[in-house]
Design a protein around this nucleic acid. Structure first.
Lengths: 271, 271
DNA sequence: GCTTGACCCCCACGTTGCGGGAGGGCTGAT
DNA sequence: ATCAGCCCTCCCGCAACGTGGGGGTCAAGC
């Protein structure tokens, strides 16, 4: 802690730094600090006689927290909000979740780039025969109903773009993941896992992740999708065929998990 | 492919669609298509009598390719180059590097957050005595030479910030990783692995990763650092003490790997 | 005491990938 | 003939800064 502190930098007066010094210390540009000052995100707590910005240790600490949120892609305006809401522990948990989401998304992008580099992709659109082989004969019905419902939306396009980078092995993995998730859902249902419990929430998050591999799926979107699970139609049949009440129960755990994330399932809308 | 084609849309005349139709089909906004037209990324191959944009099947195919590249985060200007030159490898490599850099930054942040969550951040900073215990008595010399050379730079600040959040276990892991890397380097040197070969490049990337855990280390920076390995000084001694010519050989594989990434080691500068 | 060079100030326009609206033309069905 | 939907071309705006430009400040050196 005292390492590197020289004799002449005694601790009496509160230490203050100019923009340039702070910028070097935290690794952002002077211009960025100016900007953050302008928009009120991080205002230096003082000014020198001649108008120089002076940052103290608290200011620098605030900058560090901004950095984490910025790195995960949260707009500065929102960062300002969450920072004002306080509570350190909540911040850390939130940051941890956001970081892992961001990491997995980037890793997926990296995998896609790797495949494109190898050239083993782009051509690998599955034929209908392969689709049936992989997912069963009902599959084309599903995909048609899905296209009816979602075709022409931005989500549909995003999903198509992602699928275009997938190899056959990826599809196999997708199928296996989905099957494993459904097995785990059934087990949980049979064991009487209650919606809102930690296990149920974890399963809901896995369900969301399995959608998120196709397009960016918020909790609100997940709720809207899960509504379809009690409305009849192919998706309802699919779950009901595996266990009675599975679709309805899945909708419940999704709703409860959304509530835990500040989304009211009753009023949730797409987007 | 012919699914959804109605009887009255016979195949004689080439099919053409207006912006709105295309936008719905591919799931992007009309405004985005206007924009892509403006910047020349995707220009409709025709215009109607009254000036309407008319896209044919090739245009739509091009749009799909754009979507794929956009999905992995490549800027539109580069996508235009990729689609025209067909020389995607360079851009994809660049993108791949950017992605891994961002991923490792995020992972470091995640580790830092984890440690803060454990609440043990402040208590487990290493004392100088513990550092010596872990790294051997040479360590303080290294760190002094390093501070001589790099102190006061943004990289030094970044690295100090990272070290401040590390626990003793982290340090042990760092030490073990470095030792393993050096063992592998020596093995490769003894086996006559040639600079520029895939194995050598992989080792160079591991070396870069081991620097990257301290601060963001580009290939250029790595080259600059490796120059120090033949200049004498502690770092030279460190490698030479393990195997004759190890420092020089390491510099060579670093240079070759940098060249493979489009960096000329002869002219490389810091940053 | 005055200059030098490294900082700092604010201003203002450039960038990327569109969103959104104004003010108008085109087209097909009634 | 008219009306609803399309479509067109400007053009302004957003975030989150980068990149100068013209001009003060600050500590040091002569």
């Amino acid at each position: 802690m005292v390492v590197g502190m020289r004799e002449d930098e005694r601790m009496e007066e509160p230490e203050l730094w100019t923009v340039g010094e702070v910028a070097r210390r935290v690794g952002v540009s002077v211009r960025a600090l100016h900007h953050w000052d302008e928009i009120g995100l991080v205002k230096p707590s003082g000014r020198s006689w001649g108008g120089y910005r002076l940052y103290d240790a608290d200011d620098v600490a605030r900058i560090h927290r901004v950095l984490v949120y910025r790195e995960v892609g949260i707009p500065l305006a929102e960062i300002a909000e969450v920072l004002s809401e306080g509570d350190d522990a909540a911040h850390l948990l939130r940051q941890r979740t956001l970081l892992s989401e961001r990491i997995s998304r980037l890793q997926r992008m990296a995998r896609a780039v790797d495949r494109m580099l190898k050239g083993s992709t782009m051509n690998t659109k599955l034929t209908v025969a392969e689709q049936i082989e992989l997912f069963g004969s009902d599959w084309s019905d599903y995909s048609q109903e899905a296209e009816q419902k979602w075709g022409g939306t931005p989500e549909w396009a995003q999903s198509a773009a992602r699928q275009a980078t997938m190899s056959k092995e990826d599809w196999v993995k997708v199928r296996d993941d989905v099957r494993q998730l459904e097995r785990d859902l059934i087990t949980a249902l049979d064991n009487g896992v209650a919606p809102g419990s930690p296990e149920a929430n974890a399963l809901a998050e896995r369900h969301r992740a399995s959608i998120d591999q196709w397009f960016d799926a918020s909790h609100a979107k997940q709720v809207v999708i899960a509504r379809g699970y009690i409305e009849g139609g192919r998706f309802f049949d699919h779950y009901e065929g595996q266990r009675e009440g599975l679709g309805a129960w899945l909708k419940e755990i999704v709703d409860a998990n959304a509530r835990a994330h500040g989304v009211d399932p009753a009023t949730a809308v797409w987007e």
